[in-house]
Amino acid sequence: MANWVLKGLLSGIKSSDYPRAGDDAPGVSPGRPVGTRLNSTTAAEQLVARCPTAAIARADGGVAVDHGRCVHCFRCRRDVAEPAEWQQGFEWGAYAGEPALRKLAKIFGRSLHVRFVDAGACGACMSEARQINNPYYNMHRLGIFTTPTPRNADVLLVAGPVSDAMRLPLRKTYEALPTPKRVVAIGACAASGGIFGPSFAAAAGAAGIIPVDVVVPGCPPPPLAILHGLLLAVERKPPSALMSPPPQRTTEPA
């Protein structure tokens, strides 16, 4: 056993600097398309036609991106006349609606217990959620823990479009959480149904079944984005937005 202790010590500290500082290690996030100014309307129409989930829409001077619908298929980036702008980073968590009135930072700010529910996720979101516990991201250093029972949880982390058989377990788990509570929906499926819902077998995301407070879009959102969503739920980080319009034209010199 002493060997293991030595091995662990020799590995050194691997944890990310986030949230104290940024993290731009290669491969930490796939990035995502954002609203882009385009030179021609045909280029904009091509991007809109290319997008399989209608996440890209025409907007003033270019295209806007609805992050909740984007499934990271890269079709607006590869083999197009004018590709959509791609933005690195991972602070993707956004409020689903009006932010809850009651401030939670004081109650949960330093110790947050999370119950995860898989409502039909493909496995990639689940895998990324599992990674927040690995030494690189190490949620424990931020006072975030998972709990096997919803009765001890403060936050419900839900992934997947909500398949029919999971509607009832999801609602029951939500009801079992003591108030005050927050729901963080991760992934395009939980945000909008993604490519699966709505259909005969799945709903159009978690918001149709339980009240959702924070959405972390992405397909899947990388571990740091999920951490950002959890920190946002307790107001330790500012929110991002779900819609990304094309940037405003800078005022031209007279």
Partner: peptide, 11 residues
Amino acid sequence: FFYKYRGVEKI
């Protein structure tokens, strides 16, 4: 199983 059935073959 099949709590996660999303009807992929059908859709």
